[in-house]
Design a protein around this nucleic acid. Structure first.
Lengths: 220, 220, 220, 220
DNA sequence: AATGAATGAGCGTTCATTCAT
DNA sequence: GATGAATGAACGCTCATTCAT
């Protein structure tokens, strides 16, 4: 009985996952509103009606996607961040794992990117929760960096969070919409470098450039 | 006759603009696929059929939105960039005008953000064209900055473009989805500062980089 | 005043005819239900609304077509028939002029053929009237032929009428739907020959064929 | 299982046929363009959407009508023609079965007559194929008749085909549009008689043709 | 008289959801 | 639990007709 129950649960879970993954694949290719339940059912190898045994509605699939699948991924981010000590290393790890995971599951990435940019978000609550999860990690890193002295103390943390997540998002977005299949994860280090050092030329400005004073004046 | 003609043209254009604006309002609130032609017609104060005198289809409204309305805005960006000389000023102006314009027309901003992040984009061509327009401006600024010596020469410009546009995008997105109505445009200067200087503390970098004192002074 | 009135009537009639002809052209190409008032207006070189100054409705155009245009043609048939004396010559003239007129105005022919074969006929009354006009001519010819002795007296005239008009119709139909532009009018003589003599081989059957008696038995 | 499968297939086919027949009934009464899917659905006793489980579109119903239903009937024609040997008997059988079948299913006949006389035919390909089927049968009969010597050798077969099919068509058409419900099939023999012997009085032709006495005897 | 912009009823079609098997 | 046929509400779009100019 016990054993049978495990099997059944596993079976049940299997089909749930199969449908969820099928839905992600279809949503990624067609977009949520373009996609039909029939397409998802076909991709999952089940009957249309079967989907309603595992999900309350089409919307519910998206909600489960965010509260189940992507939440797991985001929780992995936190673990990856714990592995190193310095704030800058933590930021590096976060961005690297973020790009790696999204590169590993392109369809997940696509659905994530699309849905988080909707206005009327079906999975509004889940997205907000997850977004907070991510932003909190970044906040903690920045605060640690400031405490360590490795990050500027004059930063508005709320803006820095957006600055970081936005740049990462866009790099992913560009990768998703590009035809060529370049390596997304390799963007991690250059990105971290940009976050830390910015685009401004500190060295050159300092040593060699004329007009430095003017620039300085402007940027105060 | 002349006068009548002007009036008629104006009327025609008026109704076109009225429908377009109504559509943007509805799309912003409901999302493109949720929105119905009837809602747009009601919002515009015309009959459903009237919309088809000015637009070929529902999709066409979105296409016109991108090739008409937002294109104008993006061309303004270029003008605003021309007004100043240094690369860093240009970047500042670009980001300021971007945030200002998007703050000025919240619904436009919403539709823009939503549609540019879709997978199957109805206005694909228009978005690509506009995206290129923006990226080109940023590219030119970065290249000028590198020539001037105000920006690092070891930058991968393709990444810097995404880094900048992504952060701006996310800042807008956060503003769009926030309940409180804070001032978006005021984010421009801090953002530029982040782009230029990064989050890293020069104090730490000091060990490796010359020029610490000057930057530290500015940063207090 | 008198003169002005004539001019006006002429103008009015001109536009009426122009619209009617335009409608026929469009109906012929697109079919009545496929055709739109806008297309007719464009073809006639008038505004959509103008059509409603001359015709009560779209249906009314078709009604006028039958009660006006084709009626005139069918009345010409009667005149052509009068020009000769013998029944067989009259039949020949009828069929010749019929094919000639329909060849001369291909679009009129098309609309005529299409509409007379509808079930729910918009111009039901007009078609019935015209059909009667034609059938009456044929009836008279057959009756004269019988009186003259040039046509069989054992004919069911109701059937003969259909037999003749049907064959003519089909010959026209085939011509209308064929790609090659052969000469329709040249079918008149062979058709009359078929009507008169049938396909049966009188001479040969009589002289050379075996099995003649059997055939005879069967056909009584 | 076997049995269940048969039942299911039967059910599926049943509904397909039910919808097809319902559509024919509605098309016959209203005409194809006047008829709505809702009317067809109501007549078939199904929901509107159900129709699209069996037919791709409204047009497809008409296409299936021609490629399924009427094709079967026309193939029966060929069989009926095979049952007898002489060309004239074959022609008689063809016309008899044609009239019988069309009388048996008045609505089918109506839709057939209407659609085959359209200009822009939705089921163009199917109609052309079927038309060829019929014309080929007639051609073969005429050629056989000529070989046998029972039909004139100076006939233009292309014209004879139209001559025959046209007369049959018109007889059907007249029956369809008449109010009184006379027996259509009874027209078969008189029609064949007209085809073979024509309307001309052999007595007159006598001067030119041999074999008069025999024919005269048969004709009294 | 002539225009043509505006109307809105109406239709073909889709698809999320249900439910009998 | 699994199926997939059936449903019917809903939507984009068309076009005959009207009417202010």
């Amino acid at each position: 009985m016990e054993w049978e129950c495990i099997i059944k649960t596993k079976d049940k879970n299997d089909k749930y996952q199969r449908i969820l993954q099928a839905a992600i694949n279809v949503f990624a290719q067609q977009g949520f509103y373009q996609a039909t339940i029939s397409q998802v059912a076909k991709e999952a190898g089940v009957a249309d009606g079967t989907i309603y045994l595992y999900f309350k509605s089409k919307d519910d699939i998206l909600i489960q996607f965010f509260s189940d699948k992507t939440k797991l991924i985001f929780e992995r981010f936190r673990e990856e961040v714990k592995k190193v000590n310095s704030a800058i290393d933590k930021l590096g790890n976060l961005i690297r794992i973020h790009l790696e995971e999204f590169q590993r599951d392109r369809n997940m990435a696509m659905v994530y990117q699309i849905e988080t940019h909707q206005n009327y978000r079906i999975a509004e609550d889940q997205i907000k929760e997850m977004s907070k999860l991510y932003l909190d990690i970044v906040s903690e890193i920045v605060e640690q960096g400031q405490a360590e002295g490795s990050m500027r103390r004059d930063l508005y943390v709320g803006l820095v969070k957006r600055f970081i997540i936005g740049a990462v998002d866009e790099v992913i977005n560009t990768w998703l919409h590009s035809d060529s299949e370049y390596d997304l994860a390799s963007m991690a280090q250059p990105l971290v470098d940009l976050f830390i050092r910015g685009v401004g030329n500190v060295g050159e400005r300092n040593n060699r450039l004329p007009g430095r004073e003017i620039l300085q004046a402007r940027m105060t």
